[in-house]
């Protein structure tokens, strides 16, 4: 239950200039798709993986995490708010308590398609973080766990050291995420 969207205000501005083309159409679409899958995976993981549940619950009962790609998205937001379960919350233009913002589409594409792990992305200054770094680390760990389920082993091995052990079968995880 995540929301992935492009920022319509900026898209609208792009639309006003008739000859402007939104750059990186293919890569942007892939990122949007993977972000949606990742977001759904995180929310499903909360239900079936005790480590994800523990980390999410430790962050608190009122928080939101925004994942976005500069300058025009796509954007995904998830979190807990107003006593509602951990899921998609708010809208893309809402201020989140934590924001991970990828500096550019190409590096985000690499990170969302298994070309670069979160640790390497951090080391290469590929994203900025706004908010409590202490809590963001829990999110990084959660994303690693979910990628461990969703990505093929060979790909996951390239992305993280070590691959987090699985608590449920990957096929079951993927099915639960998709359906």
């Amino acid at each position: 239950m995540t929301e992935v969207s492009e920022n319509p205000t900026q898209i609208k501005q792009e639309a006003k200039a008739p000859k402007t083309i939104v750059p990186g159409g293919f890569k942007r679409s892939v990122c949007k798709l993977v972000m949606k899958l990742l977001g759904k995976g995180i929310c499903y993981g909360y239900k079936v993986d005790s480590r994800i549940k523990q980390d999410v619950d430790a962050i608190g009962d009122d928080f939101s995490v925004k994942l976005t790609i500069s300058p025009i998205g796509p954007t995904m937001i998830f979190g807990k708010k107003d006593q509602k379960p951990f899921s998609r919350i708010g809208s893309y233009d809402e201020e989140a308590t934590m924001t991970i913002s990828f500096k550019g589409l190409n590096s985000a594409f690499k990170m969302f398609t298994g070309g670069m792990g979160l640790a390497a992305g951090y080391a290469q200054h590929r994203f900025t973080v706004k908010g409590d770094l202490y809590k963001i680390l829990a999110i990084v760990r959660i994303i690693n766990i979910v990628e461990g389920y969703l990505f093929p082993k060979a790909m996951a091995k390239k992305l993280m050291n070590p691959i987090p052990p699985k608590q449920v079968n990957s096929v079951r995880f993927l099915c639960g995420t998709l359906f």
């Binding site: 080391a123 809590k135 829990a138 690693n144 993280m160 050291n161």
Partner: peptide, 13 residues
């Protein structure tokens, strides 16, 4: 410790 930013850039997480 596992929530400290420094842990991310250690060669083994």
């Amino acid at each position: 410790a596992i929530n400290d930013g420094a842990i991310v850039v250690n060669p083994i997480m």
